[in-house]
Amino acid sequence: MSSSAPKLCVADVSMTFKTPTGAFHALAPVTLSIPQGRFVSLIGPSGCGKSTIFNIIAGLLEPTGGRVLIDGIDATGTIGRVGYMLQKDLLLLWRTVLDNVILGMEIQHVPLRAARERALPLLHRYGLAGFEYLYPNALSGGMRQRAALLRTLLFDTDVILLDEPFGALDAQTKLKMQEWLMQLWSDFSKTVLFVTHDVEESIYLSDEVHVMGTRPGRIIATIPIPLARPRVRGSVLSGEFLAIKERCLELLHLDTTASQAVNEAA
């Protein structure tokens, strides 16, 4: 593919759900264009359709309108094209960490032995050495998230979707996991679409942040993050960082008050 074509393109995707009380407009036409190797975040209040977008991109939900293009090819409604990590780690309790991590390859009919041989060095390299043959119940939340993320990466797709992967972790573990994710991202050069509630997290990790609004879910602003990489923890206190954060918070706040006004009028 030419490098100019976006890796992932969400073109005018909209979604309306039928509910007993009438049609619910979950997603106004949303357009996103993400070049190869970018790290892009979506932030927004709950109910702004972040997960709906992800389900549509992953082919788990047929959009009411619009198309999803991967490498310029229509991929609307097809599964297995992108790696998708849900907020829950969803590790299979009856499989060892190693056998959990190779699930994607196994489903794609890679022979088990080859899949394990590929996965083992990665488990060692990315902080799961010594855990390969343990069962998920023996792991801490952070370790389980690592395993889930490696499972997504080993699925071998260029695009990966991460839906609040660190939402359930404590603050310390979360910071550690963010560094770990940055490491993985630079090693594997994947195109990442990341959903989070945490404004600071989204700015710290991303090249670009899309701020979403509710009723209907839509993108209200796109903010490029010009901070240099590799980023250091201290940068979250820099004036530039704080200015971006303030802008994001303001946008989110505006949307909240606007939707409250709509609610009160209704």
């Binding site: 849900l86 829950k88 969803l90 489903i107």
Partner: peptide, 14 residues
Amino acid sequence: LDPDGEKLFYSLGA
């Protein structure tokens, strides 16, 4: 069965 578990499998193209 957790519907998200099925979602994970289908997202992997199962």
